[in-house]
Amino acid sequence: MNRLSGPAIGLFGGSFNPAHAGHRHVADAGLRELGLDQVWWMVSPQNPLKPSQPAVQSRAQTIEALNLPYAMKISHIESQLETQYTIDLLRQLRRRQPRTRFVYIIGSDNLAQMPLWKDWQALFSQIPIAVIARPGEPLRARLGRVASQMASARIPENQAHTLKNRQAPAWTYLTLPLNPISSSAIRKHRAADPT
């Protein structure tokens, strides 16, 4: 178990182009199932794996429209620290807040594509990770390269509440009721019907 004694904060990063109820579902699940004190929505200035994004502030406004509860906040720490990659952001956060119990929250779609991330193995050694099931990805993510390579660090879903107190590497996969909404579907709908 981890010896850190500070607040337990979930880091929920993404492009949020736009943010939607599916994202809120993931953040709510992380806050509730992991027993966290807060969830920070970290708006990526520019995801290296995606084409050019709308301005950070306009994407943050789509998060604001979700009426986040008190325990959630929008964070622009990536822009402030001028980091482009998740691993670099986490290393800086750990130096700045050494007592905070950070947990990284991702949807299963991100677990499936994680081999494309910079130093993804190092990411697992830096922070406990909670993966929340998303439609269309659960099986591929759970049987994929990352899940296979990190199998020995996986904790059972019924112990997810202990993740915040564990030493990395540690991760869990939460198979909660799914929310089918996706940003790509919203963008596709807007392109087809711009009114």
Rank of each mutant, 00 (worst) to 15 (best):
G14W: 04
Q80I: 12
R145N: 13
V146R: 08
Y85H: 14
I127R: 05
P156M: 09
R140W: 08
K164G: 11
A191D: 10
A60F: 07
L36K: 00
I155P: 11
R154C: 14
R3M: 12
R95H: 14
I155Q: 08
A170Q: 11
L116M: 15
D109M: 02
N158I: 08
V43F: 08
A29T: 15
R187D: 08
L163N: 12
L93D: 06
L111I: 10
E33A: 15
A130C: 15
T195V: 08
S58I: 11
P7Q: 14
S44G: 04
S108P: 10
L81K: 04
A27W: 03
L36A: 01
S44I: 05
R94V: 11
G35H: 11
G35M: 09
T86F: 00
Y104S: 01
M150S: 10
A168Y: 09
L163K: 13
R154E: 15
D119R: 13
S184W: 01
S148I: 04
A19H: 04
R95S: 15
Y70C: 12
N47K: 05
N17K: 03
V146K: 08
S125G: 06
P51T: 02
R3C: 09
T100W: 10
H23T: 05
N2I: 02
W40M: 03
T195Q: 12
H23C: 02
K73I: 02
K164A: 15
A29H: 11
E137I: 03
Q92H: 13
Q53K: 06
Y173D: 06
A19F: 06
T172C: 15
G107Q: 03
S58W: 07
L90C: 06
L31P: 11
S182A: 13
N179Y: 00
